[in-house]
């Protein structure tokens, strides 16, 4: 029996091929985003106006901001379904406290603290009690939304002073650009998150935890502490997104952002973050969020019904997990066929 000299390297190159194809999904989403932008500019009047761009991006600011810590959570193999409820709770609290005559400067830190507390509860149940994050956050999804109802009932608080509202609406932009302040905040936070995920020890640890938690723990990584921290940050960002949402619409309601959790998770997964943890780039997640936002805007401008947008979101989501899998299978098949043909038994 002869050993072909290249058999040693073949599987390695195959694996790297599979990996690069899988990794390329985030690039693909980036390319798709650019393509949609270009098509939009060419085909749709008013799409490229700075007013419209300001509106389009501001419209997904909350989802985008929450998607950042969600990306870290999913990379670490966790998920938080309670984010939209925390957004609602943040909004409801903002309204209730404002109605009670609190100063806005006091309300914001209180809301943020509540976000931290909510994140702590999620994290505590996951890391200390040892429950799956999916089950825990389905529970806190109901709990936090429920607390929002308790805080504000079915009322809406709308009498926020213009000075604060101005900060969040799409008609106020950073001078000379089409960037609104919430979008600017998102850009800054995204940059920080990207650095944390891809260039710090913490980021390295997240990938290890998501890919193989036990091995990470055996390497001395403080798995529980890190997970707890992630849930806390997610709670914090979600509560703050609640404040932005309230100001943007000038309306505090308990049911603000209902169902956003699905949109956030859809964006993150669309960007190629592996739901099983351990894989993905922040670039992909951001591209995923923006793609959903831009598509929505473009379809609306072209009078394509909201329903179609929903279908497109769903299809993209399924495609985002199915495509890399199909490519990997095809590559593997081809490799196996290639490996089997030139090796007839000589003995």
């Amino acid at each position: 029996m002869t050993t072909a000299p290249d058999t040693k390297t073949a599987p390695a190159s195959r694996a790297s091929l599979v990996r690069s194809l899988a990794l390329r999904w985030d690039t693909a989403v980036g390319v798709l985003l650019v393509a949609v932008l270009v098509v939009g500019l060419g085909s749709t009047d008013g799409f490229g106006s700075s007013e419209n761009l300001a509106f389009a991006f501001n419209d997904i600011a909350e989802v985008a901001i929450i998607a950042l810590p969600m990306t870290l959570l999913v990379v670490a193999g966790q998920v938080d379904l309670s984010v939209a409820s925390m957004l609602g709770l943040g909004s409801a609290l903002t309204g209730a406290l404002w109605e009670a005559g609190w100063a806005f400067e006091t309300i914001v830190p209180v809301v943020l603290l509540v976000g931290v507390a909510g994140g702590l509860l999620n994290g505590w149940l996951v890391t200390r009690v040892g429950l799956p994050s999916l089950a825990v956050t389905i529970g806190t999804l109901a709990l936090y939304r429920g607390l929002a109802s308790v805080a504000l009932g079915s009322d809406a608080v709308t009498d926020f002073p213009q000075t604060y509202a101005d900060w969040a609406v799409d008609t106020t932009t950073v001078p000379g650009t089409f960037l609104t302040y919430p979008v600017l905040l998102f850009i800054v936070l995204a940059a920080v998150t990207a650095v944390v995920l891809h260039a710090t020890g913490l980021g390295r640890s997240l990938f290890a935890i998501g890919a193989q938690e036990e091995a990470a723990y055996f390497a001395g990584i403080r798995v529980k502490r890190i997970k707890l921290l992630l849930f806390v940050v997610t709670g914090l960002f979600s509560a703050f997104a609640g404040v932005i949402f309230t100001l943007r619409y000038g309306s505090a309601r308990a049911d603000n952002g209902l169902g956003f959790e699905m949109l956030v998770i859809a964006s993150v997964l669309l960007g190629g973050i592996d739901f099983d943890g351990g894989k993905g780039t922040l670039f992909g997640a951001v591209a995923g969020v923006l793609l959903i936002g831009v598509l929505k805007n473009l379809l609306t401008l072209n009078d394509i019904a909201n329903e179609v947008q929903v279908i497109v979101t769903g299809l993209l989501l399924v495609a985002s997990v199915l495509t890399p899998r199909v490519i990997a299978t095809v590559v593997e098949r081809r490799h196996r066929r290639a490996a089997n043909t030139p090796a007839p038994q000589s003995t």
Binding site: A199, T200, G201, R204, F207, A219, G278
Partner: peptide
């Protein structure tokens, strides 16, 4: 396979995992 290595990660990242504080330059990996 379960505890010694993170199988999906690269050789260098696996070796780096126990020394995340040592492969830093100005605070970043």
């Amino acid at each position: 396979r379960q505890r010694g290595l993170v199988m999906d990660l690269s050789i260098e990242r696996n070796i780096g995992l126990t020394g995340l504080d040592e492969v830093r330059k100005r605070g970043l990996v």
